[in-house]
């Protein structure tokens, strides 16, 4: 689980072009949206692509994303339970 979280943080930084932020800067429970990393609606859609591309998980309803993308912790838990690759 710990290695999945580190991998996930690195991927988030890469696909969302988060400049000057490193894996160490993101805490497992930091909110991804709003106050936390300040992600927006396009980032949310990009995270859906990330799930599909890297873990074979298809989210068809963007509303499902809200609970899943709360933090790296919630994302990692969802991936661990649903990953197809």
């Amino acid at each position: 689980m710990e290695s999945l979280k580190v991998e996930l943080k690195a991927k988030i930084i890469e696909v969302l072009n988060l400049e000057d932020i490193s894996v160490e800067d993101i805490n497992d429970n930091d909110p991804l949206f709003g106050e936390g990393l300040g992600l927006d609606s396009i980032d949310a859609l990009e995270l859906i692509v990330l799930l599909d591309k890297n873990y074979g998980i298809k989210l068809t309803d963007p509303k499902d994303g809200k609970a899943i993308f709360q933090s790296v912790e919630t994302m990692a838990a969802f991936i661990a339970a649903n990953r197809k690759k």
Partner: peptide, 9 residues
Amino acid sequence: YFPSPAVFV
């Protein structure tokens, strides 16, 4: 095939 919304916009 992974169309990216962040690129498409």
